[in-house]
Simulated scan of single mutants.
Amino acid sequence: MTVRLCYASQRNRLHPDLLEDLQDILSIARDFNQLNQIYGVLYYADNAFFQCLEGEQEIVENLFERIKKDARHEDIIHLGTQVIDKIYFKKWSMKYVQQNSTVNHFFKTIGHDVFRPNYLTHENLNHFLHELVTAEQVKIRTRKKVGLTNRGISPFL
């Protein structure tokens, strides 16, 4: 049986490097999901995560149990699991969407000035998922280590 599981969480602020956390989450998710025919989306803004996972029920539920133990997440809220006929995120093993004006506008229409995924309801969750399906996927830039030469400092001085 194919299901869609959505959850929201707060980012654990004890993890100081957000970019590293996002890169790790996406890299691991994409590898695992591709092997297990799981599809989905990750959205991050205002210190909050929203994730939707689609695939075989047992695999998705086991994955969610592992996510609940991940120290990068706090205050995880299961927004729901539903049996589905159509996979929304079939193009992506894990699409990443970062904060954007369309999502900001959506949350303003439901009465919130900032991204608060824990306030999503069954009534507006599908509309939010549609916003994420149509949103542009973002590639996270890796930070390059900068040596003395690349900072314009001569190592011979």
Rank of each mutant, 00 (worst) to 15 (best):
Y96G: 04
L148A: 10
D70W: 03
N104H: 12
F89L: 06
R66L: 12
I110G: 02
V97S: 04
Y119S: 13
F64E: 00
E54T: 08
E56A: 13
G55C: 06
E61R: 11
N126L: 11
E65T: 15
Y44S: 04
L5Y: 01
I28G: 05
R4S: 10
P16N: 11
V133Y: 00
K68M: 11
D46S: 14
V41H: 00
F115T: 07
D46V: 12
L26I: 00
H122W: 00
F64D: 02
N104L: 15
C52L: 03
V83R: 13
H73M: 07
D31L: 15
I140Q: 02
S154Y: 09
R116M: 15
Y44H: 10
E20M: 10
D17E: 09
V103M: 12
L125Q: 04
R66Q: 11
F32H: 13
Q37I: 09
F89H: 02
P155N: 04
G147R: 06
P16A: 09
S154E: 05
Q137I: 07
Y7P: 01
F89E: 01
T109R: 09
D113E: 15
F128H: 04
I76P: 03
L26F: 00
G152F: 04
E61F: 05
G55Q: 05
L42D: 02
R72V: 03
L42F: 01
K95E: 00
K91V: 03
P16F: 03
A71L: 14
F107G: 02
N47K: 13
N62Q: 13
F106R: 07
L35N: 12
G111M: 02
F89P: 01
L79I: 06
H112G: 07
G147A: 10
E131H: 15
P155Q: 06
Y44I: 04
K90Q: 10
R141L: 14
L22V: 04
I77C: 11
K95V: 02
G80T: 05
K86T: 13
D113S: 14
S154G: 07
D21C: 05
L148M: 10
G40V: 00
D113T: 14
I140C: 03
Q37F: 11
A71R: 14
V114I: 15
R151W: 01
L22P: 01
Y119F: 09
D17T: 09
S93W: 00
M94E: 02
